[in-house]
């Protein structure tokens, strides 16, 4: 076990997968400049800078993926993905199906997002739900350094297009990463803290808010279970349903805006599949339907914080008590 940043964990994942498989290559906006160690080891043909042209970066990845390469592309910030929606959604996501399965698109598109750097809404926009809603794509958004590495390695090995979102608030915070060939499967959630009274489901930075809230709640005698989705498509229905069936209460937490966010899908699925286990209405705690501001206080206010998460969980538990005594 070593302690490294998620940024370095991604670098390790790229290096290990490029070493393992000669068809893996990386290109994007400054990746050869920023990750010079990869250029030194694998050469300029496999680690390339590109023009600041997100459409052709994503399209080139799709074309290369369909014909035998495994590209990883760096599109810098998530809102820039609007320039590559055509290539990711219409080509990478649809052409396998439309061609009757003649082609596959093993590619990874990385982009940073989230509050933390004060960069404002054109660099900070949690757009993961757009891609969850698009067929043929997979979406991951890790919360720990170990998962950044393990999910990146699995994403590279996956035969489908994977959107890999990097929460900027986590990117340079060191965490423990296991030694060796560390793989984290796509579609498997992690229980970050077991509990029995309420389930907190989250991903990326708000997982840490949930864990902090769970610690506060524990001191008050409320046992919260924290489920880190890690993958948003496919997402681990089994793990979420099992937890809710145990606790009977669900609070879904994410930074992305509330309306039609990933939390809406989780809430709807739990309502459909585990309604009888629910002791209180599901609570969603999410960012507002507004662009993210640059100002530190507004940026932080956008994100569900530990206090608000604890309060929502307390509310859910109290509501059961009041329902029971009514």
């Amino acid at each position: 076990m070593r302690t490294i940043t998620p940024y370095d964990a991604i670098g390790e994942a790229l290096a290990e997968e490029m070493r393992r498989d000669a068809t893996v290559l990386a290109f994007g906006e400054g990746i050869a400049t920023k990750r010079h160690d990869l250029v030194a080891e694998f050469g300029a043909a496999r680690v390339r800078n590109t023009p600041l042209a997100e459409g052709i970066i994503a399209g080139t990845a799709a074309g290369a993926a369909a014909t035998g390469l495994r590209p990883v592309v760096d599109l810098l910030f998530a809102p820039f993905l609007t320039f590559s929606m055509e290539e990711i959604v219409n080509s990478a996501g649809k052409l396998r199906f439309l061609s009757g399965g003649q082609f596959s698109f093993p590619m990874v598109a990385m982009a940073m997002t989230g509050a933390g750097w004060g960069v404002g809404a054109q660099h900070n926009h949690n757009v993961e739900a757009w891609f969850v809603h698009s067929p043929g794509l997979k979406v991951v958004m890790p919360s720990t350094a170990a998962d950044f590495k393990g999910l990146m390695k699995s994403s590279i090995r996956d035969d489908n297009p994977v959107l890999f979102f990097l929460d900027v608030a986590l990117l340079h915070t060191p965490g423990e990463v296991p030694d060796g060939d560390h793989l984290v499967p796509l579609g498997k959630a992690a229980i970050r803290r077991p509990g029995s009274d309420v389930t907190l489901v989250s991903y990326a930075k708000t997982v840490h808010g949930c864990v902090a809230a769970a610690e506060t709640l524990a001191a008050e005698g409320i046992s919260a279970e924290v489920v880190d989705l890690r993958s948003l498509k496919p997402w681990d229905e089994e793990a979420v349903l099992a937890s809710v069936r145990k606790t009977g209460r669900l609070v879904v937490v994410h930074e992305a805006s509330r309306t039609c966010g990933v939390g809406a899908e989780i809430a709807a699925t739990v309502a459909e599949e585990a309604f009888a286990s629910l002791r209180t209405p599901i609570v969603r705690l999410a960012g507002p339907d507004a662009p993210a501001a640059s100002s530190w206080v507004l940026e932080q206010a956008f994100v569900p914080q530990a206090d608000a998460i604890a309060e929502a969980a307390r509310g859910a538990v109290a509501r059961t008590l009041s329902l029971a005594t009514a």
Binding site: G55, I56, N90, S91
Partner: peptide, 20 residues
């Protein structure tokens, strides 16, 4: 390979195929 009906879609895919 890779017929795209989005006007310009084929242009977006061609460099990647050539790269392969």
């Amino acid at each position: 390979i890779l017929t795209s009906t989005i006007v310009g879609g084929e242009l977006s895919l061609a460099p990647g195929v050539a790269l392969s």
